[in-house]
Amino acid sequence: MATVLNAVLMILAIVAQEVKCQSNLHFVYLPKSVRFSPKLDPIKTSSIADLLSLTLGYSLPKSLDWKSFDSITDVFSLPKACLTVRLVGQHNFEFDGTQDIPIEETQELITQWDVFRQRTEQRFSSENRVILRLDSQEILTNNQIDNKFNILSNDEKLNKGLKRLELQELLSNVDQNDKNIKSLVIELETIYQFLEMVNGIRHKTSSFRDLYWFDVRSFAPILDHNKYDESVRRIARNLLNSLIEKMTQDITQLYSNKVVVTVIEDRYQSPHLIRNVRASEDKDLNLAHVFDPNFHSAFATIAFTTILIAVAVFGISVAMWNIDPGKDSIIYRMTSQRIKKDQ
Rank of each mutant, 00 (worst) to 15 (best):
E105M: 06
E105H: 08
T106Q: 08
T106P: 04
Q107R: 06
Q107F: 07
L109H: 07
T111A: 06
T111S: 10
T111V: 12
W113E: 00
V115A: 05
V115M: 08
V115H: 12
V115K: 15
F116I: 02
R117D: 01
Q118W: 10
Q118M: 10
Q118K: 14
R119H: 07
R119Y: 05
R119W: 13
T120H: 13
T120V: 13
T120R: 10
T120A: 05
E121G: 00
Q122S: 06
F124L: 02
F124I: 01
S125K: 13
S125V: 11
S125H: 11
S126T: 13
S126P: 11
S126R: 12
E127I: 12
N128F: 15
N128Y: 14
R129S: 02
V130F: 08
I131V: 09
R133S: 04
R133T: 05
R133L: 06
R133V: 03
D135L: 14
D135F: 15
D135W: 15
S136N: 15
S136R: 15
S136W: 15
S136C: 12
Q137A: 05
Q137M: 13
E138P: 09
I139Q: 01
L140W: 12
L140P: 06
L140G: 01
L140D: 01
T141K: 14
N142C: 08
N142I: 06
Q144L: 15
I145A: 00
D146E: 13
D146L: 15
D146R: 15
N147L: 04
N147Q: 02
N147M: 04
K148W: 14
K148A: 03
N150I: 07
N150K: 10
N150Q: 05
N150G: 01
I151A: 02
I151K: 13
I151F: 14
I151E: 04
I151L: 09
L152I: 04
L152M: 09
L152F: 14
S153H: 12
S153C: 05
S153W: 15
S153A: 02
N154C: 09
N154K: 15
N154L: 11
N154V: 10
N154Y: 15
D155A: 07
E156R: 13
E156W: 14
K157F: 15
K157Q: 06
K157I: 05
L158Y: 08
L158K: 06
L158A: 00
N159V: 11
N159I: 12
K160W: 12
K160F: 12
G161P: 11
G161F: 14
G161Q: 06
L162A: 04
L162N: 08
L162G: 03
K163V: 03
L165A: 04
L165V: 10
L165Y: 14
L165T: 11
E166K: 13
E166L: 09
L167G: 01
L167D: 00
L167H: 07
L167A: 01
L167Y: 13
Q168L: 03
Q168N: 02
L170D: 00
L170E: 00
L171R: 06
S172V: 03
S172D: 05
N173M: 11
N173L: 10
V174I: 02
V174R: 02
D175R: 12
D175H: 11
Q176A: 02
Q176H: 07
Q176L: 05
Q176E: 04
Q176Y: 08
N177C: 04
K179P: 03
K179V: 04
N180H: 11
N180C: 05
K182Q: 05
K182G: 00
K182L: 01
K182D: 00
S183F: 12
S183T: 08
L184Y: 07
